[in-house]
């Protein structure tokens, strides 16, 4: 293993922020795994740190395939990690909407450009990320549909779901989109947690990444075969919105099987304590995403369901 400083930013009153890459094996730039660009993505950073630890062991046991090189960037936006904000700097820029970046642009664009120039030639790119909205999702691989995406490769992670998302204008500035445009097979990996470490789902994510790297002939690692992924389009997820605001009491959990008409959550009047609304499942399915905060507004997304097809 060797560590590399990919980008360093100096500021007058803080120590330098340095984006670090950890390299394993030698040879062709095979896979790059990159952690959070938002300062609250602690789970993603944790997974990357565990990956660095595991790859270091594998490397010392000679289990990185010859001619293959892997890089892990555990965190991009460490400055924001230390102050508990998602976005970078006084301007509050989202680094994940600055790609491919500009070497002579704003600070955030310069960070994105430095990182992107370093990672754009890898064959496989795996980004650990989370939803912008607060909530939990079933672990899955997500990819933007832009003509280059390869969902059959995404199956090799062995996670329960692969979601293909139609690119909106705002997506064209994300890392995933730009990686794919550079012919890197890019995957975004989501777990059920973001700000807090969830050891269980972190293990699942770590196993999925190691499984993928094994199947692509990059490392030698004994792993069980995982799930046979269910590939779905984001537009096919059933959105369940609230009809009113209040205190959100969740009953249905992420990953849970539910039937049409099941009570999934209650919205409690924050003054009087009575139930203002009972959210009923609009279809048979599996809970793919669930709102996780205790307060919710009218129209907010409470759940996404994967509609179950009957045999």
């Amino acid at each position: 293993m060797f560590a590399e400083d990919i980008y360093t930013l100096s500021t007058p009153y803080r120590e330098d922020m340095s984006v670090k890459g950890y390299h394993f094996g030698k040879g062709e730039q095979s896979a790059c795994i990159i952690g959070p660009m938002r300062g609250k993505g602690v789970q993603q950073m944790y997974i990357c740190s565990q990956l660095v630890k595991t790859l270091k062991e594998l490397e010392s046991n000679g289990c990185i395939c010859s001619g293959r090189e892997v890089m892990v960037i555990p965190v991009v936006n460490s400055y924001s990690m230390n102050i508990g904000t998602n976005f970078f700097g006084v301007e509050g820029e989202d680094i994940n909407s600055q790609f491919p970046g500009r070497t002579y642009g704003d600070t955030a664009e310069q960070i994105a450009a430095a990182v992107f120039n370093r990672i754009k030639d890898y064959s496989f790119g795996i980004q650990l990320t989370a939803f912008h909205m607060t909530g939990e999702s079933v672990p899955h691989i997500r990819m933007v549909e832009n003509g280059y995406q390869n969902s059959s490769l995404a199956n090799l992670f062995g996670l329960p779901f692969v979601v293909v998302k139609k690119a909106k204008p705002i997506d064209t500035k994300t890392l995933n989109y730009n990686w794919q445009s550079m012919q890197t097979a890019a995957f975004s990996l989501y777990t059920d947690s973001n700000e807090k470490v969830s050891v269980k789902s972190a293990k699942q994510a770590l196993a999925a990444i190691l499984r993928f790297l094994t199947r692509m002939g990059i490392i030698r690692y004994e792993s069980h075969s995982g799930y046979i992924s269910h590939v779905l389009k984001e537009k096919d997820l059933t959105a369940v919105h609230t009809m009113c605001g209040g205190i959100f009491r969740r009953k249905a959990k992420v990953g849970q099987d539910i039937r049409y008409g099941d009570a999934m959550a209650e919205i409690i009047d924050p003054y009087r304590g009575n139930t203002k609304e009972t959210i009923l499942a609009p279809t048979d399915g599996i809970v793919f995403f669930a709102h996780s905060e205790s307060l919710i507004a009218e129209g907010d997304l409470a759940y996404y369901l994967v509609h179950r097809l009957h045999e």
């Binding site: 009113c244 605001g245 209040g246 205190i247 924050p270 003054y271 307060l295 919710i296 507004a297 009218e298 129209g299």
Partner: peptide, 10 residues
């Protein structure tokens, strides 16, 4: 107008 969580509409 749309309801926020606690005693207020946006």
């Amino acid at each position: 107008s749309i309801g926020l969580s606690t005693g207020e509409n946006l």
